[in-house]
C-alpha cells in the first residue's frame, strides 16, 4: 500500500489553493483512473474462476481437455447442465436448503442480538469467562464434535427431522463476536443517555442498538445463511431420507461419477453456486449498500 495512492484520492486542500484548476482536475482524474484500474484488475481476478467454471461447463469434453485451452467455448453446449440437473432432484434440494437456511438464520439473529448485546453493554458475573468459553467453541474442529453431536440428535430423537438440520445452527459464536464488536463501537454517549436498568437495556437494544446495527445483522444473517446453504457433511449424517437432502449433496452425487469430465463437474458446480449467487444479487443492494451507509452520526 503506497501513500501515493492516497494522495491521489483527494488532492490536499492547501495544494488546491496553490494549483490551477486544470492541474487539480488532472490529479483528480489520474487518481480516479488509478482507483478504477486497480479495482478492475482485482475484480477480474476475483471473477475469473467463475468465468472459467461457467465456460468449461459449456464445453464439450474434447474441448475442455485440450491444451492450450480455448478461453471462449467454440460451441456452447447445454447438455452438461441437463445431465447435472438430472443427476439429482435439484428443485427439491433447493427448496430444502432454502427452508433450512432461512430458519436457522432467523434463529441465529435472535440469539445473536441478545447475547452480543449482553457481552457488549452489560456488566455481569462471569462475563469474561463465559466469553472465552464461547470463543473456545470456535476453535474445536467440527469434525471432532461431529459424532458427539450426532449422539445428541439421536437422544433428542431428532434424527431425520428438520430440527436436526436447523436447531444446532441457531446460535453462532462468530456472529456474537461480530455483533459484540459493533455494539462496542457504538458511541458511549448514545448509551449513557439511557438510564441503566434492566428494562431500559431492552428498550435501548430494541430501539437504538438493533436499528443501528441492521447492516451488521444482515451480515450475520448472510453468513449464517451461507453456512447452512453450503453444509454437506452434517445433513448427510443426520438425515437418511433423500427427501430432506440439501443442495450440496447434489453436487457430491454428481462429482463422484464425473471422472475426468471437468465440463460436467463445472456444470454441477455452477448449479450449486447459481441460486445463492442469484439470491445475493437480488439482496445485495440492501446488504452492501446498507453496510456502507452505517454512518452512526450521518
Amino acid at each position: 500500500m503506497t501513500s501515493q495512492s492516497y494522495r491521489l484520492l483527494a488532492p490536499r486542500k492547501r495544494a488546491r489553493k496553490r494549483q490551477g484548476t486544470w492541474q487539480l482536475r488532472l490529479a483528480r482524474w489520474a487518481g480516479l483512473a488509478l482507483i478504477y484500474a486497480l479495482l478492475t484488475l482485482g475484480a477480474l481476478t476475483m471473477v475469473f474462476p467463475f468465468y472459467w467454471m461457467v465456460s468449461t461447463a459449456f464445453k464439450s469434453i474434447q474441448e475442455a481437455l485440450i491444451f492450450p485451452p480455448t478461453l471462449v467455448p467454440t460451441e456452447w453446449l447445454w447438455s452438461n447442465f441437463r445431465e447435472a440437473w438430472e443427476a439429482a432432484p435439484f428443485p427439491r434440494y433447493f427448496a430444502n436448503t432454502t427452508f433450512m437456511a432461512s430458519a436457522s438464520t432467523l434463529g441465529t439473529l435472535i440469539t445473536t442480538v441478545l447475547a452480543a448485546y449482553a457481552f457488549a453493554r452489560m456488566r455481569f458475573f462471569g462475563k469474561n469467562v463465559l466469553f472465552i468459553l464461547f470463543m473456545a467453541t470456535m476453535m474445536m474442529p467440527f469434525e471432532v464434535i461431529l459424532i458427539p453431536n450426532f449422539l445428541i440428535i439421536k437422544t433428542l430423537k431428532w434424527y431425520n427431522t428438520f430440527l436436526a438440520l436447523i436447531v444446532p445452527w441457531t446460535a453462532s459464536v462468530f456472529g456474537i463476536f461480530l455483533l459484540r464488536q459493533f455494539y462496542l463501537s457504538l458511541p458511549k454517549d448514545l448509551f449513557d443517555a439511557a438510564v441503566i436498568d434492566g428494562c431500559s437495556h431492552f428498550r435501548f437494544l430494541w430501539n437504538v442498538a438493533v436499528p443501528l446495527s441492521v447492516p451488521a445483522l444482515i451480515t450475520v444473517g448472510i453468513f449464517s445463511f451461507l453456512g447452512s446453504w453450503n453444509s454437506l457433511l452434517w445433513p448427510l449424517i443426520v438425515t437418511s431420507n433423500p427427501e430432506m437432502r440439501p443442495i450440496q449433496v447434489g453436487l457430491t452425487a454428481f462429482q463422484s461419477e464425473a471422472g475426468s469430465y471437468y465440463n460436467r463437474m463445472m456444470a454441477a458446480a455452477t448449479l450449486a453456486v447459481l441460486p445463492i449467487v442469484a439470491m445475493f444479487l437480488v439482496a445485495q443492494k440492501q446488504f452492501v449498500e446498507g453496510i456502507a451507509r452505517t454512518g452512526l452520526k450521518g
Binding site: A115, M122, F124, M140, I145, A171, V173, G198
Partner: peptide
C-alpha cells in the same frame, strides 16, 4: 440484578451452545 438480566439475554444462545458445542466438546 444486571447479571441476572444478562443471563436472560444469553439464555437462548447458551442453550444452543451448551447442547451442541460444550457437551460434544466434553464428550470428545
Amino acid at each position: 440484578s444486571e447479571t441476572l438480566a444478562a443471563y436472560l439475554y444469553l439464555l437462548p444462545a447458551i442453550l444452543i451452545i451448551v447442547t451442541f458445542h460444550f457437551f460434544p466438546i466434553f464428550y470428545a
